[in-house]
């Protein structure tokens, strides 16, 4: 007997089922197809302006920072301003995301912008989130050439651009949008390798329960929120 049959057989014996029962199979198929929502906290269920304000507040509560700009054209200047304020060298690395690519980086002539995954020697990474969650101040990023995962974790400073229109009240709204884009249950393409839900900069409290920011990931998380609701 294969290990697979052994494990599934043991589970079925314990549950006193065969796995063939039509009623059980239907319950499972329905649940996977309908993916019902459970309890959604009221906190994030707000009109757009209040939702953005909540998002900003939640990011700040988890030790992130937020800059708001009117349009995507203003992002390079906001990036340069962050670097100046922190006394960082004028160099960043970003992914191939077309939204980032379309931004007027040439308006910041002293800023060096590298494109591609990080090998661990970049101080500042710039990513574009696919969405965000106001309830918890969470950013949602997808792996891939547009926003390589290494940029989220290796640089000391992670700058994340978020389009205000994509800030949802709750996580379930974002997950169901992802499902619509990537296909039911993974669909033909399936989800990207990683969906990252990021809430604040990296931290640890493993030594004497003392909170320290910047464990293995970024020490700082800076959100650039683009546009009005």
């Amino acid at each position: 007997m294969s290990a697979r049959d052994q494990v599934l057989g043991a589970i079925r014996r314990a549950l006193a089922v065969t796995g063939e029962e039509p009623s059980r199979r239907k319950i499972v198929a329905d649940r996977l197809a309908d993916h019902p929502c459970g309890v959604i906290p009221a906190r994030g269920q707000l009109l757009p302006a209040a939702r953005l304000a909540l998002f900003q507040k939640r990011v700040e509560l988890v030790a992130g920072t937020v800059a708001r700009v009117a349009t995507a054209e203003d992002v390079p200047a906001a990036v340069a301003a962050y670097l100046r304020a922190d006394g960082l060298p004028p160099a960043v690395r970003r992914g191939a995301d077309p939204r980032l690519g379309a931004m007027p980086w040439e308006r910041e002539p002293s800023l060096a912008v590298a494109v591609g995954a990080s090998a661990g020697d970049d101080l500042v990474g710039v990513s574009h989130a696919v969405a965000a969650v106001a309830e918890t101040g969470t950013l949602v990023l997808l792996s891939g050439p547009d926003n390589p995962t290494t940029l989220n974790f290796l640089p000391d400073h992670h700058l994340v651009v978020v389009d205000a229109a994509t800030v949802a009240g709750d996580l379930e709204t974002v997950l169901s949008r992802l499902r619509d884009t990537w296909g039911q249950g993974g669909g033909p393409g399936g989800l990207p390798r990683n969906v990252h839900l990021i809430t604040g900069p990296s931290r640890t409290a493993d030594i004497e329960q003392t909170l320290i920011l910047g464990a293995h990931g970024p020490r700082r998380l800076h959100v650039i929120l683009v546009g009005e609701p």
Binding site: R58, V62, T136, G137, T138, G186, G190, L191, P192, R193, N194, V195, H196, L197, I198, T199, G200, P201, S202, R203, G217
Partner: peptide, 10 residues
């Protein structure tokens, strides 16, 4: 409220 990194890997 939420851990820093919740990562869904496929």
């Amino acid at each position: 409220e939420m851990s820093v990194y919740t990562t869904i890997t496929t």
